[in-house]
Amino acid sequence: DDWEIHFNNITIRLHGVSEEQIEELKELIKNGAHEEELRKWAEEVNR
């Protein structure tokens, strides 16, 4: 699925990401992940 997530003036566009991966991302954000951590997560997902 395609997703677009907005938070802290950042837009993250995701393509072909599962519901499970979105839940992981929500947890990262909820736990106060920094932009660098989110980038690493996105790189892993996009492999």
Rank of each mutant, 00 (worst) to 15 (best):
D1K: 15
D1A: 15
D1R: 15
D2G: 11
D2A: 08
W3Y: 15
W3S: 03
E4L: 09
E4R: 06
E4F: 13
E4N: 07
I5S: 08
I5N: 02
I5R: 04
F7V: 14
F7G: 01
F7S: 03
N8T: 09
N8I: 13
N8F: 06
I10S: 09
I10C: 12
T11H: 05
T11Y: 08
T11S: 09
T11W: 06
I12H: 06
R13G: 10
R13T: 13
R13Q: 09
R13N: 13
L14K: 01
L14Q: 01
L14T: 03
L14H: 03
L14I: 09
H15N: 09
H15M: 05
H15V: 10
H15F: 13
H15G: 04
G16S: 12
G16V: 06
V17C: 02
V17K: 01
V17M: 07
V17Y: 04
V17S: 01
V17G: 03
V17F: 07
S18M: 04
S18G: 05
E19M: 11
E19F: 13
E19S: 12
E19D: 10
E20S: 14
E20W: 10
E20A: 13
Q21P: 00
Q21I: 14
Q21A: 10
Q21S: 06
Q21D: 07
I22S: 02
I22A: 08
I22N: 01
E23G: 09
E23P: 01
E23C: 10
E24M: 09
E24G: 05
E24H: 11
E24S: 10
L25K: 00
L25Q: 00
L25T: 00
K26L: 14
K26Y: 14
K26C: 15
K26A: 07
K26I: 11
E27W: 14
E27L: 13
E27Q: 12
L28D: 00
L28E: 00
I29G: 00
I29C: 12
I29D: 00
K30I: 06
K30G: 04
K30C: 15
N31F: 04
N31V: 04
N31T: 06
N31R: 12
N31L: 06
N31S: 12
N31A: 13
G32Y: 02
G32C: 11
A33W: 03
A33P: 01
A33M: 10
H34K: 13
E35D: 06
E35W: 10
E35C: 14
E35F: 10
E35M: 07
E36C: 09
E36K: 08
E37F: 05
E37I: 04
E37N: 03
E37G: 03
E37V: 06
L38W: 02
R39L: 15
R39A: 11
R39V: 14
R39T: 08
K40E: 08
K40G: 05
W41N: 00
W41R: 01
W41M: 01
A42Y: 14
E43K: 04
E43M: 03
E43V: 03
E44M: 04
E44D: 11
E44Y: 06
E44T: 05
V45Y: 10
V45N: 05
N46H: 10
N46P: 03
N46R: 07
N46G: 03
N46D: 14
N46Y: 11
N46M: 15
R47I: 15
R47L: 15
R47D: 12
